[in-house]
Design a protein around this nucleic acid. Structure first.
Lengths: 339, 339
DNA sequence: TCTCGGTACTTATCCGGTTCAGCTCGCGGT
DNA sequence: ACCGCGAGCTGAACCGGATAAGTACCGAGA
């Protein structure tokens, strides 16, 4: 049972392939009567345009690509990516545009996938995430000539269109808030040091700490997993002059850190204040609920998707600075009991 | 800057398109010297086969489809789907097969998307989830003739290949465990009543309760959200003869239920035992950590993906019963203090 | 020397659409 | 009665590959 083609419709309607094409695409060149007849036949035999044939004539793929470079099994654990994807989807779905998703091992494979998708005409554009310092993907994407939106700071996006939020401001707000509560020793459990946004947060943290004269504050880098977050917390809390507040770069580590603190019989927030970056159900269900840097990640993804669609449409959307994360105080932060 | 085609390679190499095609596909018909020359040129000018042109000749799309029928913003909150997707991805990635993801409003749109993808030759197969009772998608998919793997019980999968786990056994194990602890009034906060697996769990729950003579047990249906889970819990715990144990159909509701119990100054597990369906970081970080029905959702997705790939390859994989969820006792279950 | 067989190609056709250059009407104007 | 014009349609080329069929050439065997 072969798929019906316009040739089948043409035969049944007693007209040529060309006429059928005009009719189905709502272009002039056929009478209304013929058009109606052709549409009826097309509907009746369940015709669907073959995207391959369309694409061959230079049409859109109506899909955008997202290759994620991380172990597939971590994906489900990262609320950030899942919310980002759902935000992207919400925007794409409205335009019946699909998302091509592929999890890859490393950045070389990632670029190979993009190159293939683009070369094969399977996607109209892509969204680049997890920007590194001096990321080779930026110039490579540029060279490919594919429409790309980068989720990350403009300073690293080269000539690609960036969508970002001001992490520096969020870091400053958090540290100033903790300092106002009376904290003097604030630690930061950060993510991968080679990621651009980690570097930005690192720098902002250092600056605000030195501005507020918080000499004993410092940053530890991890891989974002709960395990490393727990380990870092254990080390921090074991030191003689342990911090009275810890700021985590994601919610998974913050929650893991909370568990460690409770294991070590420290009271949160009396003995230790905790701030999580990125709000998620996770940060809200633990006791105490975590003070978090919340932002609408979904909207973030939606903005990136919308900009990408504009780019694909030939527009020239400028960079977009999304809202910075807002500090949402909950039960995990308080003045230190013994500063 | 046009994309290079085999015609460009042919011109540079001074041979015909046909020879280039043979060379690039590793088929006999060209000398090794010519083949090497052609491959070198192809590599040099960065040639990629145009998938549209390939597809036109009946080749694979090298992508499988997944249309999810739910609000996009809920996606990020559902650990189940995210883990399922990462499991699917892990299997697909190994074969360089992409996942076409689209979030849709309703089942009609979902079928329209599948029909389009299949008709357009953009996917080689699909994975069907969230099976309903008398799901019209099953016969429609069958009629399409597209390779499809259903995640759900065989009784509802018609002639499509099912991948499922025995929810009935898990329900029985849970109720028997709670009864053994001394619980007599066990409530169940279930998911959407029209979903096949809800019906299966409902029936198993009813059967085991009547077998164990737990007359005061019952099921409340919700939409899986934390809000409804909390509401159901509030109603259950407000009743004069409140249950001493509640089994939730997902982790989000279980965590919400835990919060409600704590709000109402009930001690978990002394006053109320809680069991969550599906284990996730969420169930492990709350205090007390939740006893959960854990299963490897990632593997579940991977199995479905593998079967789909086999189906696409023309094999005839039988149904696959995956492992049933195992009861993982944690701190949220104990004998009732006042039965 | 002629044929046979195989290698190394070329040529032509096909896939299913889009698009464009004609072609054929019927009709209005003169 | 004839021309011009445009609506409505046809036929064919084209997109970029895969592939079946055909051809040129070379060396071995009769």
């Amino acid at each position: 049972m072969r798929r019906p083609t316009i040739a089948d419709i043409a035969r049944q309607a007693g007209v040529s392939k060309g006429a059928v094409s005009y009719a189905l695409n709502g272009r002039p060149g056929v009478s209304e009567a013929t058009r109606a007849r052709i549409l009826a036949i097309a509907h009746e035999i369940g015709w669907q345009p073959n995207s391959a044939a369309r694409a061959l004539n230079g049409a859109r793929a109506e899909a955008v690509g997202l290759a994620l470079c991380r172990p597939a099994r971590f994906l489900g654990m990262e609320p950030f990516f899942m919310e980002l994807i759902s935000g992207i989807e919400s925007e794409l779905a409205a335009r019946s545009c699909a998302l091509m998703l592929q999890v890859v091992r490393d950045h070389e494979t990632e670029m190979a996938v993009y190159r293939r998708w683009w070369g094969e005409g399977r996607v109209d554009g892509a969204i680049l995430v997890d920007l590194h310092v001096d990321d080779p993907r930026v110039p490579e994407m540029r060279a490919l000539g594919m429409p790309v939106v980068v989720i990350g700071h403009p300073s690293a996006a080269g000539s690609l269109v960036p969508v970002w939020s001001d992490d520096g401001a969020a870091v400053r707000e958090t540290v100033e808030y903790l300092a106002a509560l009376g904290h003097r020793r604030i630690a930061r459990v950060a993510g991968l040091p080679r990621l651009v946004h980690t570097v930005i947060r690192d720098r902002a943290f250092e600056e605000v700490c030195s501005a507020l004269d918080l000499a004993e504050s410092g940053t530890m880098h991890t891989d974002y997993t709960g395990e490393e977050g727990a380990r870092a917390t254990r080390r921090l809390l074991s030191s003689p002059r342990r911090p009275t507040a810890i700021v985590y770069d994601n919610d998974i580590m913050a929650v893991a850190g909370l568990s460690v603190a409770q294991e070590m019989r420290l009271d949160v927030p009396a003995d230790l204040s905790i701030v999580a970056w990125d709000d998620s159900p996770l940060s809200q269900v633990v006791r105490p609920p975590l003070t978090a840097l919340s932002r609408d990640i979904s909207a973030y993804g939606a903005h990136a998707a919308r900009r990408l669609l504009a780019l694909i449409d030939g527009a020239d959307p400028g960079p977009l600075e999304d809202e910075a994360a807002r500090l949402t105080p909950r039960g995990s932060t308080a003045p230190p009991s013994r500063p």
